[in-house]
Design a protein around this nucleic acid. Structure first.
Length: 203
DNA sequence: GACCCATTATTA
DNA sequence: TAATAATGGGTC
């Protein structure tokens, strides 16, 4: 059989690219005009920004996804009119409009931190302890019951898994032999590995 | 597209 | 200043 650790380490992780403000401006400007650029446009952006095409494609995927999330969840919820053409002088003013909305309503700062109530945290934690990976409809239900945007729920679970994983790994260092003793009830996955959530096993 | 996870940044 | 919500670039 193959050692999972070997499989995992055999692939190098690309070091995280930090997109600079100037590069972001280039991408953003294109995104505002057309959120799914063709190869030619990607090449152009790559030339202008010096970013790898792969990074640009990924950025567009993420940004489009986030923009959709935002328009679903956001109270501001401004609609972006669909664009079909690139070469149009009126585009200029549209872009300016978007720029205006963005800097005005939504602002450029990160959205303010949600303060969960004790009740909300208890429900989330209880759910997490039995299932760290809620399905879409379960997230929907939690969203309704707790009166929180689905995005906030998703992020909460993501952070909770991160936290659980970390605390498991901390204690796994000292209790390596116990890993094999774990019952396979509830797991948190990471790459090819499976870790049991420490908190789950306590319940 | 879902999830990972280092990092950033907000709030008690 | 610690805890942790949110971000963004990474992988599969």
């Amino acid at each position: 059989g193959l050692d999972p650790n070997f499989l995992r380490q055999s692939q190098f992780k690309r070091p995280r690219t930090r997109i600079t403000d100037d590069q972001l401006k280039i991408l953003r400007a294109h995104f505002d005009i057309n959120n799914s650029p063709n190869e030619e446009q990607i090449q152009e952006m790559a030339d202008k920004s010096g970013l790898p095409q792969k990074v640009i494609k990924h950025w567009f995927r993420n940004t489009l996804f986030k923009e959709r999330q935002r328009s679903k969840d956001s109270p501001y919820n401004f609609n972006i009119p669909p664009m079909t053409t690139l070469e149009d002088i009126r585009l200029e003013s549209q872009v300016n409009m978007l720029e205006y909305y963005r800097t005005d309503a939504t602002a450029n700062k990160r959205s303010s931190r949600t303060r969960f109530t004790d009740y909300q945290l208890r429900v989330l934690q209880d759910f997490f302890d039995t299932n760290a990976y809620p399905k879409d409809d379960e997230i929907e239900q939690l969203s309704t019951v707790l009166n929180l945007p689905t995005r906030v729920i998703v992020v909460w679970f993501q952070n909770a898994r991160q936290k659980a994983r970390k605390s498991y790994e901390n204690q796994a260092d000292t209790k390596d032999s116990e890993k094999k003793e774990l019952t396979n009830e509830r797991y948190i996955r990471t790459n090819n590995m499976q870790y049991q959530c420490k908190k789950c096993s306590v319940i």
